[in-house]
Structure formats: structure tokens, C-alpha cells
């Protein structure tokens, strides 16, 4: 057992920041310790833990204001919330301006709210591995986990694998239906929100277009993604959104949730292996098909543990090959 694991599971808030620092630490000793902690948390939480909600959408769509409104909702019924806000990193300098935290005021001084901003760090175009680990840490220690990411059509897939419910936030006049379809954002989200409903006609048009677009695609029979109009700024439609999130969770059911988390686990293992060992590493394991077989053969195994096991195999194989040549 690690020192931090039991503290997190006992909801000790003071363990959260050190745990997040640890899982972000790239030094070998820290990585080993983090792997143990994460495997431990995953084993304990399994398919439980806090519900994980993702918020994604273009910059300026009002995600932060919406996030703020949702946090207030949860705090009003005395539930705690952990937030991960992901911002893009500069490709050139590696630097990042994190935040718009300025818009999230509900957490200031409130121990029931925890916010960690993270840079996407552009690891092969995706979210940092630390983001996945961070979601797990927060879901041990808080009642709800919210993940906010910027993007249209690029990071949705990854966020969708990270959360139980993905909310796409559109702003009025964001573009016509064709653009939504081109960006490929109609397939993944579970809930669509047209924010800034206070602007009226443009919001209504965007809402209708999204609704029309959703009718075209193929969808799960149990859940048709609703399109909600809200004004996060004025607090209008937040109740309805909250109800919708609960409804989605019910529709998902134990089975749906299990499938979702398992899909997320698989995606995390794949992304983790590629980020660490690249395509040569995958080859060493026997290629993508072999990896898929391994994933399918270990349905209950924690992703972070699996990542370590497979990583060790790859290292061994690469080492062997290097020794043999």
C-alpha cells in the first residue's frame, strides 16, 4: 500500500494535491510509485467512484461559466467536486496559459471544490497521461469529477474515453450544421448544450440545427442526446441540464457504465503504450491485434496495472532484441 492511496480513499483533501503532483512526475522513482498508487486506486474504485462529466467545446463557448454553474449546483446539496481543466500547450515553447479559472469563482476558499489546471502538453496531439491519472485521483476523493477541455473535433474522442457523460457546449451562431458534421462532433457527446441562450434567435437556430443533425446519425437506442438551451451566465436551464445528466446516468445503467469505463481503460492503455514506447514498442508486443487480444483477455484488470505489465514486456522484448542483434 502507498501512503497516499488510503488517504485519498478516506477523502483526505490534503492528499489530493500531492497525489496529482506525483502522477504528473516523470522521474523514474516517482513513476514507479505513481503506478502503484494508480493501480491501487483503480482496483478499489473499479466502476464506482465519482461520476465523471466532461465539458468540451470551442473557446469562448462559455464552458467555464457553465462549469461554475454546475459546481454551484453540486455544492448547494453539499456534494464535493473535483475539477480538471485542460488547456492547450504551445507547440513551440511548451508553455501554457492555464485558466480562465478567473471565471470559476465558486471554488474560491471552499474546501469542497478542488481545481487543478493542466496543460495538454501536446503529447502526440492528445491529452497528457497525467489527465487520465488525475481523473482517477479525483474520483477517489470527491463526489463528482468534472473535466473541461477546449476543442472542436480533435479532443472529443479522448475526453469521451475519460468520462461517463460527455457534454458538448456550443455557442449561438457557432456555424452551420455542415460544420458540426465536418468536425465530427455529432457522434460522441451524450448531451448538447447551446449556451448563451440569452442572445435569443441565434441560440435557437443553433439548437435546432444540432437537433436536426442528430436525427441523421445512428445512435444508441437507449439514449438520444438531447439539445438543451441554457444561459450559464443567468443560471437559466441549469436545473434541466442537471436533470439530464442524472437521466443519462440512469439510461447508462450498471452495464453501460461498465462498458464505458472499460472502453476508457482500453483507450488509456493504448495511448499510454504509444506515448511511452511508440509504434516500435507496439510491434514488440506483437502489433495492435495482439494488444487488442490482451485487452479483451483481461476485462477486470486495472488499466494502470495493465499498462505497467505490458510496458515491462515491451521493455524486455526490446532489450532482448537489442541484445540479440
Amino acid at each position: 500500500m502507498t501512503e497516499l492511496g488510503p488517504r485519498l480513499l478516506a477523502r483526505d483533501r490534503s492528499a489530493v494535491a500531492p497525489a496529482l503532483n506525483l502522477v504528473d512526475d516523470r522521474r523514474p522513482a516517482a513513476r514507479r510509485e505513481a503506478a502503484v498508487l494508480l493501480a491501487e486506486l483503480e482496483a478499489k474504485i473499479g466502476r464506482g467512484g465519482a461520476p465523471r462529466i466532461g465539458l468540451t467545446g470551442a473557446p469562448g463557448a462559455g464552458k467555464s461559466t457553465l462549469l461554475d454553474a454546475l459546481v454551484r449546483r453540486r455544492r448547494a446539496v453539499d456534494e464535493t467536486v473535483g475539477v480538471i481543466a485542460v488547456d492547450p500547450s504551445s507547440r513551440r515553447t511548451g508553455g501554457a496559459l492555464l485558466g480562465d479559472r478567473i471565471r470559476v469563482r465558486s471554488g474560491a476558499g471552499d474546501p469542497g471544490v478542488f481545481i487543478r489546471s493542466m496543460a495538454a502538453r501536446d503529447q502526440l496531439g492528445g491529452l497528457a497521461e497525467a489527465t487520465r491519472a488525475g481523473v482517477l485521483v479525483l474520483s477517489a476523493a470527491f463526489d463528482w469529477v468534472l473535466v473541461e477541455t477546449v476543442g472542436v473535433g480533435q479532443s472529443e474522442g479522448e475526453v469521451a474515453d475519460l468520462v461517463d457523460t460527455l457534454v458538448f457546449v456550443a455557442q449561438p451562431g457557432a456555424g452551420d450544421l455542415l460544420q458540426f458534421m465536418k468536425a465530427g462532433i455529432l457522434e460522441l457527446p451524450d448531451v448538447f448544450v447551446v449556451n448563451k441562450a440569452d442572445v435569443g434567435a441565434a441560440a435557437e437556430r443553433t439548437r435546432r440545427e444540432l437537433e436536426a443533425g442528430l436525427g441523421l446519425g445512428e445512435r444508441d437506442a437507449k439514449w438520444t442526446p438531447p439539445v438543451l438551451a441554457v444561459s450559464a451566465r443567468d443560471g437559466i436551464g441549469i436545473d434541466a441540464l442537471d436533470d439530464t445528466l442524472a437521466a443519462h446516468r440512469r439510461a447508462l445503467g450498471a452495464e453501460g457504465l461498465a462498458a464505458r469505463r472499460s472502453r476508457g481503460r482500453d483507450a488509456a492503455v493504448r495511448a499510454g503504450l504509444v506515448a511511452r514506447y511508440g509504434s516500435f514498442g507496439l510491434e514488440a508486443l506483437g502489433g495492435t491485434e495482439a494488444l487488442e487480444r490482451r485487452l479483451a483477455a483481461a476485462p477486470g484488470e486495472p488499466g494502470f496495472a495493465l499498462l505497467e505489465t505490458l510496458g515491462n514486456e515491451i521493455r524486455a522484448a526490446l532489450g532482448d532484441r537489442a541484445a540479440g542483434s
Binding site: 489530493v16 508553455g95 492555464l98 478567473i102 474560491a108 481545481i115 487543478r116
Partner: peptide
């Protein structure tokens, strides 16, 4: 650098909380 900028009008205790939570 990765920069957290929380904007204006913060109390010292909010700054301390943010520094800790943000690592």
C-alpha cells in the same frame, strides 16, 4: 512555463489554496 493566472481581487487565503491545489 505552465502559468496559472487567477486574475484580480483574491484574498491571500484563496491564493494559498490555489497554489496548493494547482501544484
Amino acid at each position: 512555463m505552465e502559468v496559472v493566472y487567477d486574475g484580480i481581487r483574491l484574498t491571500p487565503s484563496e491564493i494559498v489554496q490555489s497554489a496548493r491545489d494547482e501544484g
